[in-house]
């Protein structure tokens, strides 16, 4: 049985490995978590993710910039890849699936990848369409996978407008799907105007918002089913 002290030490190492973008330490600590029989779920959320939360704060405070963020993400994935196969049940209260991609005409995918990482750690099933994705592809993939959520990203004003078309098409085909948009030129105002359910200011915000959306969606579904069975 792993001692509380050892547990604390490993969580601290995972957390710091992410903050200090140290992939090797993240891997070593993750392996040790498994060796000593510590709970992988605990290691992900109280180690890796809590490191990423600190990174988010450093980013907001402009101590970290995008290069640091990318390197921290690499360290997180280094640990996550080892721990994930050993996770029995991720417990965030809600699980869901998401279609994510950068809209056609836009080849910038860094923001999208950071958001994707948050869904990955939260145990969502992620269908990543990549970048420069033809607009129809989002609708097609959502229908095919019956995903709860579609996330659209655009880095440039020039491509952002394509998102409106995807939103309209998705709504026409599946009124219940939740849609979230994000990217440098996007604002709350635009999200509301175009009828998106959520607007991702950043990755943290994207995940919180996504969980809320899916919870409300699941609740609606349950209510509908309860009515049917009555």
């Amino acid at each position: 049985m792993v001692t509380e002290d050892k547990k604390k030490e490993l969580l601290e190492r995972l957390k710091n490995a992410v903050i200090q973008y140290d992939e090797d330490t993240a891997k070593e600590a993750a392996k040790e978590v498994l060796d000593v029989g510590m709970n992988a779920n605990d290691a992900i959320f109280n180690g890796l993710v809590s490191g990423m939360e600190e990174v988010g704060r450093l980013f907001e405070a402009q101590e970290y910039f995008v290069p640091e963020l990318l390197m921290c993400a690499d360290a997180l994935y280094a640990g996550l890849d080892i721990l994930k196969p050993h996770v029995q049940q991720l417990d965030l209260g809600v699980k869901g699936s998401v279609v994510i991609g950068t809209v056609e005409g836009d080849v910038h995918d860094i923001g999208k990848n950071i958001v994707k990482m948050m869904f990955d750690v939260a145990g969502f099933t992620v269908y990543d369409l990549g970048r420069d994705v033809p607009l129809d592809k989002f609708v097609e993939e959502q229908l095919k996978t019956d995903s709860d959520l579609v996330c659209l990203s655009a880095m440039m004003t020039t491509t952002m407008v394509g998102m409106k078309k995807v939103i309209d098409d998705l709504r026409a085909k599946n009124p219940n799907v939740k849609i979230m948009i994000g990217g440098a030129p996007v604002s709350q105002d635009i999200a509301e105007k175009w009828g998106a359910d959520g607007y991702a200011k950043d990755a943290n915000n994207a995940l919180k918002d996504a969980i809320n959306m899916i919870s409300s969606l699941k609740k609606l579904k349950e209510e509908a089913e309860a009515r049917k069975s009555r």
Binding site: E104, G105, D106, V107, D132, M156, T158, T159, G162
Partner: peptide, 15 residues
């Protein structure tokens, strides 16, 4: 480069 010649929409060329 890709100029998106197949589309009517306004999409700027990308690499």
């Amino acid at each position: 480069i890709n100029v998106y010649a197949h589309l009517e929409d306004i999409l700027y060329p990308t690499i």
